[in-house]
Amino acid sequence: MNSKLVVSSSPHLRTPETITSIMIDVIIALFPVALASVLIFGYYALVTIVVGVLAAMVTEAVLKMKTDIMSDGSAAVTGLLLALTLPPNAPLWIPAVGSACAILIAKHFFGGVGNNIFNPALVGRAILVMSWGTLMVGGSDFWPVPGVLNFSRNVAGADVETAATPLEAEIVAMGTGWQELLVGNVTGSLGETSAIAILIGAFWLFYKGHIDWRIPGGYIGTVFILGMLLGDGFYMDSVLMTGVFHVLAGGVMLGAFFMATDMVTSPVTPLGRLLFGVGCGVITMIIRLYGAYPEGVTFAILLMNAVTPIIDRYTVPKKFGEVKS
């Protein structure tokens, strides 16, 4: 028996966690989000999601020249995330092309899982926005399926005239109340509208220890504060509610909990993660308030992805027992 003794360096114990188990946890976390999108926008949302996921998985399998389509699960996550950022009425080739681009350009050109600098799902989305912009802002023409989740659509004090930015105009034109923003019964991208569904999913990721508070906290906190300071209190005539509006409307919630927290493309140092979140928030608000696009989440996170290596480099934590010099 002695001849068979295994020798390896310590430690001799390993967590049961693997890359695949983490990816499965992310998929579980996105389930409520996907479910909400189907409830709000109808079965076509489901078809869009399935196409996005499958396209990503197939692209990955082809590139890796393996028949195992599941692989480590990271492609499925990318496809799912991409699909959830699409408008509810996009033609089906949109998720297919977007997922394929995400996997091919953002992931494999950089050397595969772990080596990509930019969040693949957001790269896919950015390519779609730049190439077929009109198809990607279809949201405001497409209303939630009536009758699934019903809330009164009137909100005191909001009117289209005072809404200063495209995003505000879009939402306010519909007379949306904050309760609806919370539940998600509004127009928007598939997975971005329901804050509650996103929070349920995010809770799972917190519970499993896959994300910490710093990135989403820094992101949402910054959006909230800047929304209060710079939003002119347009929403419900309240500075506070304008901050809430900027957090709940658009893609901030999905971006903060599921996109900015992407492990591969965000900083590893604790301080770096906080700065990254704050940076995402600042850029998002600059684009929202002063930019040409109605929404800035995608580009905010991609820009911060680009500076992640620099952030890591300058936020190395103080080591234990560091001697002050």
Binding site: E17, I19, I22, D72, G111, G112, V113, G114, N115, G209, H210, M263, V264, T265, S266, P267, V268, T269, P270, R273, P317
Partner: peptide
């Protein structure tokens, strides 16, 4: 595998 930068080690 490649490091997925999950920061769990950090």
């Amino acid at each position: 595998n490649s490091c997925i930068r999950c920061a769990k080690c950090v």
